[in-house]
Design a protein around this nucleic acid. Structure first.
Length: 208
DNA sequence: TGCCAGGCCCTCTTTAGGGCCTT
């Protein structure tokens, strides 16, 4: 049985990749992650990785990561072996987690590593917490929630840090709005699956 | 060279279609 953990003690991660689908040959080119403990960032992980082929000009422009920057970087398997140590024993959070989880599972498998934790999606939670936001892109939510902008969007560590601050802002909002002193990871994981029309009812039930 | 995904969620829905979000 999985140990119950606090929602504000997690690893928040973000991948930059060569495209949208590992099933069609896309690979990770950067991983960024922060370890959050009791609401504070206490550790960081950031590595570029060489996918073994040239990345497209679209991805160079989108991420700011160039083929020149990837020359001489370690291969994905080597970086992911290190990263598996970083996330061991922690639940993880990502923005649009289904995307990052696909690459995490794919790259860990290639590195002969595995991950046993649970993954929660900050985008799905934000659709319940910030229903008045114009959209739920990370960049929009950072502005909407009053989270500080850190570094450049579309770089892995900066996006991971901003997602972590967004995650903490959502927890803080739940605590203050619903008077819940301690929010657990499994509760936010459940919230992300509740129909958004019933999000308020679910959160109110936690305060009882 | 150019192509490709997939889970969630809304509605003009549920025997479906299309937008959002990630790179």
């Amino acid at each position: 049985m999985q140990k119950r953990t606090l929602a504000d003690s997690v690893v928040v991660l973000d991948f930059e990749t060569t495209g949208l689908s590992p099933q069609y040959g896309d690979r990770a080119i950067e991983i960024g992650a922060v370890l959050v403990e009791e609401g504070r960032i206490v550790d960081r992980f950031q590595k570029l990785m060489n996918p073994g082929f040239r990345i497209s000009s679209f991805i160079e422009a989108y991420t700011g990561i160039t083929n020149e920057m990837l020359k001489g970087e370690a291969c994905c398997e080597e970086v992911m072996a290190q990263f598996s140590e970083f996330i061991a024993g922690h639940n993880i959070v990502a923005h649009n987690a289904s995307f990052d989880k696909r690459f995490l599972d794919f790259e860990l498998k290639r590195a002969n590593r595995s991950y046993e934790g649970v993954c929660c999606c900050s985008l799905l939670v934000s659709r319940r917490i910030y229903q008045d936001s114009p959209n739920h892109k990370l960049q929009t939510l950072v502005s909407h929630a009053g989270v500080p902008t850190i570094g450049s969007f579309h770089r892995a560590l900066a996006d991971a840090e901003m997602t972590a601050h967004l995650w903490l802002a959502m927890i803080d909002r739940i605590r203050k709005q619903y008077g819940i002193p301690t929010v657990f990871f499994d509760q936010l994981s459940e919230l992300s699956r509740v129909d958004k029309l019933y999000a308020h009812r679910y959160l109110t039930s936690l305060a009882d």
